[in-house]
């Protein structure tokens, strides 16, 4: 039966971007495939949204995957209450602009007990306000699949991660007994209470992320671009000094300088780099000659070797 006359055709926009290069196109196709597969196979997926550049790319790909429909699952932000202020503003703006269902979760216990990165140390704080909070939020939502923006090139234990990463009912990851994953045929069969973390960006590298942001004109939190900002030097890191909760220790002083961030997490645990890169082009140029990895700016990854594996086993992304 032919379609009725009222059925609308999707029309091309008057101006379109130049096509992606084959390298990025292949990565994009793979990510869209994963998004659609998870959305089709699972009852209640959710997308972890951390507001950073990888999450921004992830969200963009999700919108592409389900076009012309809406993104068919909510976004979950685990708010530790110690994020950069600009991140929260950006999050709310994006959710509104793209008509997204946004779920924000904060660990009430941690907040009541006033667990902060300053008072309890980065490791304990992360366990409670990020890992425990994430488990709470996933349980509360009854989600059986959670998308994350993790990439295999980030860290050694992530290099072993599957695209569909199986988790027990208490969110444990057992790296020694992962399901084999052949071709692009993913096994989405799980029992009640079990879940899967799905990683559409597994095969992307940091450079790919930035090139894609450039090619697709994806909006980012301004903290990724260099600007004159106040900071304090502490434990070899430059910490942004804009939040009144940051108390100066003896000998510390607030300085100003051109800085930016390569990754964004909780402001007390995320170090800035000195940079004059105020545009995307300059950021990419800087990246191509960078000699340190992006996670160097993350205090939680530096505690010990294998610390990421330990956190992942306990339910961290």
């Amino acid at each position: 039966m032919p379609l009725s006359a009222q059925e609308t055709e999707i029309k091309n926009p008057p101006v379109s971007r130049p096509p992606l290069d084959p390298h990025l196109k292949a990565l994009e196709n793979e990510a869209i495939h994963i998004f659609r597969e998870v959305a089709a196979e699972f009852e209640k997926p959710v997308m972890l949204y951390s507001i950073g550049k990888d999450s921004s790319v992830l969200l963009h790909l999700a919108r592409k995957a389900f076009f012309p429909g809406r993104v068919p699952f909510p976004l979950l932000h685990v708010d530790t209450t110690w994020k950069f202020q600009e991140m929260i503003a950006f999050r709310d703006e994006i959710a509104e602009k793209y008509d997204l269902d946004l779920v924000v979760h904060t660990n009430a216990r941690g907040k009541a007990e006033n667990i902060t990165p300053f008072t309890h140390g980065s490791s304990f704080y992360t366990d409670v306000m990020k890992t425990e909070a994430l488990r709470q939020a996933l349980d509360a939502g009854g989600y059986d699949a959670a998308f994350g923006g993790a990439r295999r090139d980030e860290e050694a234990s992530r290099a072993k991660e599957r695209i569909y990463s199986f988790r027990t009912p208490d969110h444990k990851w057992d790296p020694r007994n992962q399901r084999p994953e052949l071709w692009n045929i993913y096994n989405g069969m799980i029992r009640q209470g079990e879940s899967v973390r799905a990683f559409p960006l597994s095969n992307w590298t940091e450079v790919d992320i930035w090139r894609y942001i450039q090619a697709e004109d994806i909006p980012l939190v301004p903290l990724y671009y260099a600007a004159e900002r106040p900071y304090v030097e502490r434990d070899g890191m430059m910490i942004l000094a804009e939040d009144p909760r940051l108390e100066l220790k003896p000998g510390e002083e607030v300085r100003h300088g051109m800085i930016r961030f390569r990754t964004l997490g909780c402001f007390p645990l995320t170090g800035a780099i000195r940079s004059s890169a105020t545009t995307l082009e300059e950021v990419i140029a800087e990246l191509e000659i960078a000699t340190v990895s992006e996670r160097q700016g993350r205090a939680i990854d530096r505690d010990q070797s294998g610390s990421m594996e330990k956190k992942k086993r306990e339910g961290y992304f």
């Binding site: 860290e155 050694a156 234990s157 290099a159 020694r176 992962q178 070797s305 294998g306 594996e309």
Partner: peptide, 13 residues
């Protein structure tokens, strides 16, 4: 990258 691999000195996965 896995602790078990470092301990045993072999690649598992």
């Amino acid at each position: 990258g896995l602790q078990a691999e470092r301990e045993q000195g072999i690649t598992i996965d």
